[in-house]
């Protein structure tokens, strides 16, 4: 096995830290002492590795062309991305809430399945059908889930709502008549802090009658 060549994330003295007795000056933990030379473009040694690229994305049935870095997430493209024609993509329905795949605020569908857009690289979404909350309604006609959310007041501040709406729509497209337990499982990847869950469950049940 190759030697463990792990960087030391920080060079603070743990022993001192442990005792809670700082002695002398140490570089702060907030500044890593080793910086990986990541700025350089495609590494010669890795052949066709790309550090950035112009990719085609199909979002809500519309084609977009956007330049991304390898590390750019799908969520960043949706929210902050600029099409090569210069227009902002500006699909801000999906939110960044936890940035770690723990909350569902960034839920979108990729090829009909829900994913966390904060945990997906934009390059991985190339060639796939991406549906965001903005793409669910048919013009002015709300998706049954959206309509039911409004009628049941399944939202308060509304910040989590786009994620819940997308998850609910995906759930109903797989299972048109879910039980309460199945609704809970289907929406278990989404979090609401205002506490709208009871009315969300009601809304999904109502919407399921129209599916």
């Amino acid at each position: 096995m190759p030697d463990k060549e792990k960087k030391q994330g920080t060079n603070i003295s743990r022993r001192n830290f442990l005792k809670g007795v700082g002695t002398g000056t140490v570089a702060a933990t907030v500044a890593p002492s080793v910086l990986i030379g990541a700025e350089k473009e495609a590494d010669a040694q890795t052949g066709d590795a790309v550090a950035s690229a112009t990719i085609q994305l199909n979002i809500n049935g519309k084609p977009y062309q956007v330049e991304v870095e390898a590390r750019t997430t799908l969520l960043t493209v949706l929210r902050d991305g600029i099409d090569t024609s210069g227009t902002n993509i500006d699909l801000t329905g999906a939110k960044l809430i936890c940035d770690r795949g723990e909350c569902g605020g960034c839920t979108v569908m990729v090829d009909g399945k829900t994913v966390y857009a904060c945990m997906m690289l934009a390059m991985d979404a190339e060639g796939k059908q991406i549906t965001t909350v903005e793409g669910l309604a048919d013009g002015d006609n709300l998706h049954p889930v959206q309509d039911a959310f409004v009628q049941h007041d399944a939202l308060m501040c509304g910040f989590c709502t786009p994620g819940f709406v997308v998850s609910s729509a995906a759930l109903l497209s797989e299972n048109t008549k879910p039980t309460l337990e199945e609704i809970k499982v289907g929406l278990s990847g989404n979090t609401c802090r205002c506490g709208t869950y009871p009315f969300i469950f009601d809304a999904v049940k109502t919407a399921s009658k129209k599916m």
Binding site: T10, I12, A28, T29, V30, R79, D80, N88, D90, L91, T92, G93, A94, K95, L96, T132, V133, E134, L136, A137, L142, V145, Q146, D147, F149, V150, D153, L155, G158, F159, T161, P162, V165
Partner: peptide, 30 residues
């Protein structure tokens, strides 16, 4: 309701202005 379920509702986090820059704060870990 309608703006919130369609993603049209713009929160502070969603405001995008021409020439927008992104701010970040370095914080102590100590």
């Amino acid at each position: 309701g309608k703006d919130k379920v369609t993603g049209k509702a713009k929160y502070t986090f969603d405001i995008n202005r021409p020439g927008l820059l992104y701010g970040r704060i370095l914080r102590s870990e100590v």
